[in-house]
């Protein structure tokens, strides 16, 4: 097992190296060059641009710049943001907890909704509730994120008010400005963005859970469990659910990194200062030290979650061994 993890870690390092070459190449070849965000700005003269190019070493050929970047990164220096002048890694570590809070809550809410409803729907197949749930799920799955987000804002921040005339729920940011940190306030700010994401992803997870459970519920070993006289709850929770969760873990693994990408819309609509917006902003400004750092963090998360899923498999399914 340890050997397997070590081997996978080595593979991961190679993968990340290849990815870094590719994205460095892509960023360097944006139309208009790295300085394109400034070259259209009338406040910048040609001299300014030349000075900046010199300062950031942009006159070197791309391979040389990549080598310099890599050497610096290996020493822990990811460069400074062009715009804020702060270290790129600092920018990320400021934002990452916000994204993790948002996505973590959303993940928990999604699973808390989708798994019980999916199981219930499967156990009550073809009843009124099953039809209702699957219909709602299909509708939920079809909602465009941005549209649904705006709808939530209109309803809960514009139309509905508290008795003293303030919006029922805040529509933007992580906290009420000018106030010290307050858990209740943070939770209030989380409700809308988390609901928006959770409703949509819970819809699809519920459908997966339902069909996975239906697959399992008619298996021989479920009949065996009943034949042993186990209470129905135990039959479902111990014998059926564990088998039904295996395909769900695959999906979760695939979604884990996607969730960081999906945060872009949410963070933009609800002005949530997370990594998604950092990526968007730095991409618009071709702030390549930050852009490289964000993309490398993404890539790392993808590689890490793949490994995590493979490890979770061995826990869930003893037939799978890693070596």
């Amino acid at each position: 097992m340890t050997q397997y993890i070590l081997r996978r870690a080595l593979q991961a390092i190679l993968t990340l190296l290849v990815i870094s070459v590719l994205i460095f190449g892509l960023i360097s070849s944006v139309p208009g060059g790295i300085m394109s965000a400034y070259s259209e700005n009338p406040d910048f003269t040609q001299e300014d641009l030349a000075r900046l190019r010199e300062k950031y070493g942009l006159n070197d050929p791309v391979p040389v710049r990549y080598a310099k970047w890599l050497l610096n990164v290996l020493q822990g220096d990811w460069g400074n943001s062009f715009t804020s002048k702060r270290p790129a890694l600092q920018e990320i570590s400021d934002r990452l907890p916000n994204t993790l809070l948002l996505m973590g809550s959303m993940f928990l809410v999604t699973l808390a909704i989708a798994i019980p409803l999916g199981i219930y729907s499967a156990l009550k197949q073809y009843t009124f509730f099953d039809h209702l749930l699957t219909t709602v799920a299909l509708a939920g799955q079809s909602l465009p994120t941005f549209w649904f987000g705006l709808l939530l804002i209109i309803i809960f921040s514009v139309l509905l008010k508290t008795p003293d005339g303030k919006p029922l729920l805040p529509s933007a940011g992580m906290m009420t400005l000018g106030q010290p940190f307050n858990l209740l306030d943070r939770l209030r700010h989380l409700i809308l963005p988390v609901s928006m994401l959770a409703v949509i992803s819970a819809a699809s997870y519920m459908r997966y859970m339902r069909s996975s459970m239906l697959d399992v519920i008619h298996k021989d070993y479920v009949r065996t469990a009943r034949g042993k006289g186990l209470p129905e709850k135990m039959v479902i929770s111990r014998h059926a659910l564990r088998n039904a969760l295996i395909p769900i873990v695959t999906l979760l693994g695939l979604d884990l990194p996607n969730l960081f990408g999906g945060a872009l819309f949410t963070e933009t609509i609800f002005a949530w200062p997370g990594i998604g917006r950092l990526f968007f902003d730095s991409a618009m400004k071709t702030d390549y030290p930050v852009l490289m750092a964000v993309l490398m963090v993404y890539s790392f998360l993808i590689v890490a979650s793949n490994l995590l899923v493979d490890l979770v498999y061995t826990v869930l399914d003893p037939r799978i061994t890693l070596d």
Binding site: D220, Y221, T224, G227, G229, P231, E232, N243, D317, P318
Partner: peptide, 28 residues
Amino acid sequence: DQELSKVRGAEIGMVYQEPMTAFNPVLS
């Protein structure tokens, strides 16, 4: 159902045709 589950396994034991599929693959 509840009364019956006290009989199943306790007073009536069952052996099935396919020992591969009749055991739960993920439990020892």
